[in-house]
Structures are given as structure tokens and as C-alpha cells.
Simulated scan of single mutants.
Amino acid sequence: MTPAGKRDKRVTIQRSTSTSDCHNEQIEAWSDVDTRWTAVFYGRGDERRQAAAETGNQTATFVMLADSITRAVTIKDRLSYAGDWDIVGISPSSAEIEFTAVRAS
């Protein structure tokens, strides 16, 4: 368990795949890799206000147990929790892995 909070949210890791439509054009589709118990931490109030004013984005940190699946996640993947989150940073340790992600508001 993380010292700063509980992993009490269900977050789905998603990976992009390419497929062709009926006109043989490439379409990006997202498929679920796994769903994990996760601790979710949003930025401080001043960070949230500044991000919203500058870019309209919200930032959060997602903390999961580290294993072969979570260590294989890259910034090309995304997280799904109350919307879709683009991963912008990954910080692994021996027991846990932290994903910093943003979502457009």
C-alpha cells in the first residue's frame, strides 16, 4: 500500500492499435490491457488552476503495483479512469510504478 494513499480506484491500462476501415484507411483503436487497483492523486489546487488557465488540461498521478504488465506500459499507452488520460511520465520503483497523466478538460 502506498504511504500517501490507498489503491482504491479501478484504472484500466489501454494500448493503441491500428485497424483499417471499409475504405482501407487506418483507424486508431484502443484496447484494454488490464485493469488495476490504483491510488490517484490530483495536482495541488494552484497547479490545477494554472493548468486549466494555460492549457485546459488536468494532471494526475496514478500509483500501481509494479509487475511485468505495468513495467511494459509506455507513454504511447493511456489510462482510463473517469475519462481518458494520456501518459506523460513514468517513474518506476521496485514495488510500485507512478504514471503522470493529463486529460483535456
Rank of each mutant, 00 (worst) to 15 (best):
G5D: 10
K6M: 11
R7G: 05
D8Q: 12
D8C: 09
D8Y: 07
K9A: 10
K9C: 14
R10L: 15
T12C: 07
T12L: 02
I13A: 00
I13L: 08
S16E: 12
T17F: 10
S18T: 14
S20L: 15
D21V: 05
C22V: 12
H23C: 09
H23I: 07
H23N: 13
E28R: 09
E28L: 05
W30R: 00
D32Q: 08
R36Y: 05
Y42A: 14
G43D: 15
G43Q: 07
G45W: 03
G45M: 06
D46I: 09
E47I: 07
E47M: 08
E47P: 05
E47Q: 14
R48L: 15
R49S: 15
A51K: 03
A53N: 13
E54V: 10
T55F: 13
T55S: 15
G56A: 05
N57P: 03
A60G: 08
A60S: 06
V63C: 04
M64E: 00
A66S: 11
D67L: 00
D67W: 01
S68T: 09
I69H: 02
I69N: 06
T70G: 01
R71W: 01
A72L: 07
V73T: 04
I75S: 10
D77F: 02
D77G: 03
L79I: 03
L79T: 00
S80Y: 10
Y81Q: 02
A82Q: 11
G83V: 08
D84K: 08
D84T: 08
D86F: 05
D86E: 13
I87W: 02
I87C: 03
I87P: 00
I90R: 10
I90C: 07
S91K: 09
S93R: 02
S93C: 06
S94C: 04
A95T: 15
A95Q: 11
A95I: 06
A95H: 09
A95F: 08
A95M: 10
E96T: 15
I97D: 01
E98Q: 13
E98I: 11
A101V: 06
V102P: 02
